[in-house]
Design a protein around this nucleic acid. Structure first.
Length: 154
DNA sequence: CGTTTGACTACGC
DNA sequence: CGCGTAGCCAAAC
């Protein structure tokens, strides 16, 4: 399973991912891995292996966002675990994503990455997740006092 | 019809 | 902290 098409119900998976992405507010970002962490593996698949494979499925789901759906699915708020845009750097789509992230205020100046500790999403409401049998998301945002203090050594 | 190629991540060095 | 690798499928070339 290294492809969304290998899942038992690719369409349902994609619809669920889109529903989750729709909930990410402006000014915050989520990651492929965070979304994947909410969706349980199919029966018989090892949870640990799945955690490494599933983020690609989320990528597939984002890749499938057409220009028509683009208005209702804020795909640009989904980035990789390093806080970077995962689209090929020199593409039109990547440029658009950078512009959108700047508009959202999460990518400052000429930065090429987003500080997940500051702008990471906390995930959907707990009852929304519970109603669908989903896991609680992997945490991205750090409490302000746990943020790295770069000059702390001096 | 055989190869290549992924909107990724965890883990081991 | 950076780099390589496994995962092991399906669709595009």
């Amino acid at each position: 399973m290294a492809n969304i098409a290998a899942l038992p119900d690719p369409q349902a998976y994609m619809a669920l991912v889109w529903d989750i992405v729709r909930m990410v507010p402006a000014g915050q970002v989520t990651t492929f891995g965070q979304i994947a962490s909410m969706i349980p593996p199919p029966p018989g698949v090892d949870e640990r292996d799945y955690a490494r494979l599933a983020p690609r499925f989320v990528g597939d789901a984002m890749n499938a966002v057409s220009w028509k759906d683009e208005a209702t699915v804020p795909w640009h708020r989904v980035i990789n675990g390093k806080g970077e845009i995962s689209l090929p750097p020199d593409t039109k789509a990547a440029a658009l994503q950078r512009a959108r992230l700047r508009d959202d205020g999460v990518m400052e100046g000429d930065m090429e990455s987003v500080d997940l500790g500051r702008f990471g999403w906390e995930g959907p409401p707990a009852d929304w997740l519970a109603a669908r049998g989903l896991h609680s998301p992997k945490p991205l945002r750090r409490p302000p006092d746990e943020r790295p203090q770069q000059m702390a050594l001096f």
